[in-house]
Nucleic acid binder design. Structure first.
Length: 339
RNA sequence: GCAGAGGUGGCGGAGCGGUCAAACGCAUCGGACUGUAAAUCCGACUCCUUCGGGAUACACUGGUUCAAAUCCAGUCCUCUGCA
């Protein structure tokens, strides 16, 4: 598999956080036009555990997925869960120590263990552990997060190269995350320093929309201006269809968001005529497909009225069909970008 | 027919003198969701309102009380047991 394509073309990766895009079979996932997915180090660490996945052929063998796999470092989830006190644990210079609410085990995620876990999961593109913080950071906090992210990036780079032989030996790519909150100079600084270390990709990290839900394009620009063009430029967590187009225009080429699949499950679907809420009463007698301009399994076979009824009746089939549609809609956007 | 139990908002079901326009659940109607603890969460849900309130409401009709969904009487229904 030639991973260099990730540096040249546009990709949208649905989140298969626990090694599954919710409600889709791997076959259905492929049929949406999806070529790459993101799984999550943190969630897979807790269950079923990296050793189990490794024994079962890595995430690709496990899922029977022959496409590209990214693993998120787990930093974003863990730190947001810890910062909001939803999980017990603490962030420290060596990473984070936390208690899994699932079975109460104590785990430690460090730059090195994060790489180890991602290797065992068997992903194609690894992400360095980054120090992701809350929104509304002071300059001092943002600076600390940048400096720690840089120190961790160095450790990840070193560990990946020294313990595994780097890209040359593994064939895998290593990407890093640019922090700096809404301080443009910190964003630029973080990007430059990471480029200095050298990675296969520079991911825009942190929060991608402001309080009003507007994409932070100025921050994204500050990063893109300081990284190479022929690299992975992954805008993590972006976003709404229009946000993906904006980010692509600025220079990003890879995207992921939970909105696609989560909104589908909640009955909010994307169409060529804008957002439609399938659960709303006006859909009850609507014989038209979700999107007349879509050829997915959902739109080719079923009416809005039928999907409305299934959602109202808690029939899981609707979740599958709407996920297929939303994901197909996103992949169609990506196809147009690649034309 | 006799003996018990009971009739509360679209439904189920709390409340058993004042803080009750009435808990909670469901249904209904909106909305949110951006490196997923999410088939989740939030709001509305008698009518009117200049958003401060106002007017009708707990089977029906009377009554007691400063005050009744809550107490009393009668009426009409429903369920369970015995004939």
């Amino acid at each position: 598999m030639d991973l260099n394509i990730l540096k040249q073309k546009y990709f949208f990766m649905p989140d298969a956080t626990r090694g599954a895009v919710r409600y889709l079979t791997t076959k259905q996932l492929k049929e949406t036009g999806t070529q790459a997915i993101v799984t999550n180090t943190l969630h897979l660490l807790i269950s079923p555990g990296p050793d189990v996945i490794q024994k079962l052929g890595g995430i690709k063998g496990f899922m029977n997925w022959d496409g590209i796999v990214f693993t998120d470092s787990g930093g974003f989830q863990l730190f947001s869960l810890l910062h909001s006190h939803k999980w017990e644990g603490k962030v420290h210079e060596n990473g984070a120590t936390f208690k899994s609410p699932r079975e109460g085990n104590i785990y430690e995620l460090t730059p090195e263990t994060s790489i180890d876990i991602q290797m065992k999961i068997g992903s194609d593109v690894l992400v360095c552990l980054d120090d992701c913080r809350d929104t509304n950071l002071t300059r001092k906090e943002a600076q600390e997060s940048v400096e720690r992210t840089l120190r961790w990036a160095v450790r990840c780079r070193k560990h990946f190269d020294e313990s595994y032989g780097g890209t040359q030996k593994t064939g895998k790519l290593l990407t890093c995350v640019v922090q700096g909150a809404n301080f443009l100079d910190l964003r630029a600084y973080c990007a430059k320093e990471l480029v200095e270390i050298g990675f296969d990709g520079y991911n825009f990290g942190g929060y991608v929309v402001d309080k009003e839900g507007k994409l932070v394009l100025d921050e994204m620009s500050a990063v893109i201006e300081n990284i190479p063009k022929d690299t992975i430029r992954y805008a993590m967590g972006v976003g709404k269809p229009e946000d993906i187009l904006s980010a692509a225009k600025v220079g990003y080429n890879i995207f992921d968001t939970v909105l696609v699949t989560r909104n589908a499950r909640h009955g909010t679907v994307y169409t060529s005529q804008g957002v439609v809420r399938i659960k709303n009463s006006e859909m009850a007698l609507d014989k038209s497909p979700v999107d007349v301009n879509c050829n997915c399994e959902c739109c080719s076979n079923y009416s809005r009225a039928y999907l409305h009824h299934m959602l109202k009746s808690n029939e899981a089939t609707a979740l599958t069909l709407l996920t297929i549609h939303n994901l197909t809609f996103y992949q169609d956007i990506i196809k147009k970008l690649n034309q």
